[in-house]
């Protein structure tokens, strides 16, 4: 029974929106405005609404809603679903903090959670540090030809598929890999450096995987900045770092926020790169979720964990937007 009420939520939400729209029309009445059905005719109007509603409901809203309610149920075999044991429970969420088997604090999962968020934040910062100078150069400083070449050099590597990219990076960073051989050949180290075990591979791989995701919002934001603004600041005596601090970065802030948000969300939710490139002791949170779904067939717990990850990410992003005084609307401008 409790599973059914999920299907009522969309109806409820739509009703709320309709009431809101109704009130708004009353408050801001525009006599020249023609209603949706006036403009399109009744039949076409209904068809449009039905199509959009189908799209949002079945492809966007319902799958998530199904997962939400799944996460509030116990793990049951098919025969017991809908039976007396099928109750609403917070058990799955509690299991993230307290292990259900022995009642101990679930340090493994908690650690994986915080490590994933922290590492993703680090990847985001690293990515920003790499992309900002590049984006600035491409948008404001470089000559057309060089910029085109650079753009090509940035995009072409993405034709290579992710697995190949990850494993070639592994080869490069392995203890008998090229980089270690060069380092030892030059006599910089005696023993090979354990890049993979120290998660260097993970950071490099993740940064590289989402480089363009950071690059394009940054580039777009910086590109639309009037060159004269930069020169005006310079003319008024600003050294280069002040120009960036006072003029370029404030102007590009929405783009920066949008790039950082996306890179952070994508890295925190990525699955392949951490598995291929993480050190043997590294446990990425998405791997745990993956295992619950496909190894343990514990969908409720997997769903609960996935939503915890989502909530954690959103909370952190919101906090950061707050700290840097960017409104959410600006980031998707």
């Amino acid at each position: 029974m409790s599973r059914l009420f999920v299907y009522l939520i969309p109806v409820f939400v739509i009703a709320v929106f309709m009431v809101m729209a109704h009130f708004e029309r009353r408050v801001a009445h525009d006599p020249t405005h023609r209603g949706f059905f006036d403009r399109n005719g009744t039949v076409l109007g209904i068809a449009f609404i039905a199509l959009v509603a189908f799209w949002t409901l079945f492809l966007v809203v319902l799958p998530y809603l199904y997962m939400v309610q799944e996460s509030f149920h116990p793990k049951l075999v098919a025969a017991e679903r809908g039976g007396p044991k099928d109750i609403l429970t917070l058990e799955q969420y509690r299991s993230f903090f307290i292990q259900p088997t022995d009642g101990e604090v679930n340090t493994t999962h908690l650690w994986a959670f915080f490590f994933s968020l922290a590492a993703s934040a680090a990847v985001t910062v690293l990515n920003f540090a790499i992309c900002y100078p590049l984006a600035y150069y491409m948008a404001q400083a470089g000559s057309v030809q060089k910029v085109r070449l650079l753009m090509l050099a940035l995009i072409v590597p993405y034709w290579v598929n992710e697995i190949l990219r990850a494993f070639s990076l592994r080869l490069l960073l392995a203890s008998k890999g090229l980089i270690n051989q060069v380092l030892m050949g030059l006599g910089l180290t005696d023993a090979p450096v354990d890049f993979l075990g120290n998660n260097v591979g993970l950071y490099v791989g993740l940064s590289y995987a989402y480089l363009l995701v950071m690059m394009f919002p940054l580039y777009n934001a910086v590109e639309s900045l009037d060159k004269n603004q930069i020169e005006a600041a310079r003319d008024l005596g600003a050294p280069w770092w002040r120009i960036h601090k006072d003029v370029v970065i404030p102007y590009a802030k929405p783009g920066i926020a949008s790039g950082c948000t996306m890179v952070f969300m994508l890295s925190a939710g990525s699955l392949a790169a951490p598995q291929f490139l993480g050190g043997p002791k590294t446990l990425w949170f998405t791997s745990i979720v993956y295992d619950f779904f496909f190894q343990a067939f514990n969908w409720p717990r997997g769903a609960a964990y996935a939503f915890l990850l989502l909530a954690g990410c959103i909370a952190l992003v919101m906090l950061m937007l707050r700290v840097f005084k960017v409104s959410l609307g600006e980031t998707i401008r």
């Binding site: 009037d226 020169e231 003319d235």
Partner: peptide, 28 residues
């Protein structure tokens, strides 16, 4: 340019849109 005793007024003015009038004037 940032060390010369000159100040330039640009053809399109190039005022800083995210600063107030006073902040613009006193940026230098």
């Amino acid at each position: 340019a940032n060390k010369r005793p000159t100040a330039l007024i640009f053809q399109n003015l190039a005022l800083f849109p995210l600063m107030t009038v006073a902040e613009n004037i006193t940026y230098g």
